[in-house]
Simulated scan of single mutants.
Amino acid sequence: MKILKISAILFFCWGINLTGFAQKIPADALKGDFDGDGKPEFAWITSNMKEQKTEDDFGQCNGGDCQCIIRFSNPKIRGIIVPQCIGSDALQNEGDLNGDGRDELSLVPSWWTSCWQACHVYTFQTNGRWRELIKPFSVYCSHLADNPDVVRSVAPKTIEIRESTMGEEIGIKTRKIKVN
């Protein structure tokens, strides 16, 4: 009975498909081969942010902490839980950045109060888990609006990132990083 209650809560709050039934893929879902099996799957983000019905509802999320989940059409691919997230400023398929035969994902999560966010780049492992391919880096919202492609492959196992910086002015620093 306890498992059924937890499943019902997860399904209600997150829309998590725990029953094996087909799930609806959003029209804006990303297509890619995230597990490297040669078959395309789709990825999209969901949020547990409460729908604002009154002024008092602003800034609240179902279940307490605001989190998002990057979900996948292939039920064998575990979702990625993203803390401090109410949506996505940019969720992108980056292609195979590290030469492992699997497409990587980047995410710049949305938050309530700031234009400064961290870009996360995720890679799927052979053990069925996700890990961050590189250390998250800063991105400012106007830089995303100008060009959402803040990660790109420049050579085998080498990427270039466009990181937002703060000095006397907000700027962009481009740097290359080796990845595995």
Results as ranks from 00 to 15, higher is better:
R162V: 01
A118T: 04
S153N: 10
M166T: 09
D103G: 00
N62Y: 14
N127L: 03
W130M: 04
V139D: 01
N74Y: 11
F137C: 12
M49Q: 13
R131K: 15
C85D: 04
W116V: 05
I70P: 03
P136Y: 01
E55F: 13
K50D: 07
T165R: 05
D57P: 04
N93C: 09
D89E: 13
M166I: 11
E55C: 00
A145I: 11
Q60T: 15
S138C: 04
Q84G: 01
T54R: 14
I69M: 14
T126V: 06
G87N: 07
F42E: 05
W130G: 04
C66R: 03
T158V: 14
Y122A: 02
G63L: 08
Y140N: 03
R129W: 08
K50R: 15
Y122V: 04
N147S: 12
C85Y: 04
I86A: 04
T126M: 10
R129N: 13
S106Y: 05
W44R: 04
G101V: 04
E132D: 14
T165W: 11
L133V: 08
E160Q: 15
L144N: 08
Q92L: 12
S110L: 09
T126F: 06
F137I: 09
I77G: 00
S73I: 05
L144H: 05
L107I: 11
L97P: 00
E163K: 12
D65G: 06
H120A: 02
S153Y: 01
F72D: 00
A145H: 09
Q84V: 12
Y140K: 02
I69G: 00
G87M: 06
T165N: 05
C68I: 11
Q92Y: 02
G128S: 07
R129K: 14
L133A: 09
G101S: 10
I86P: 05
P156C: 09
Q125Y: 04
A43T: 03
P136M: 08
D100L: 04
T46Q: 10
C115Q: 03
T113R: 10
S114E: 08
Q67T: 09
Y140M: 06
P83A: 03
C61P: 05
A90S: 15
N93D: 12
V121S: 01
I159K: 08
A43S: 05
T158M: 08
W111R: 12
Q84L: 07
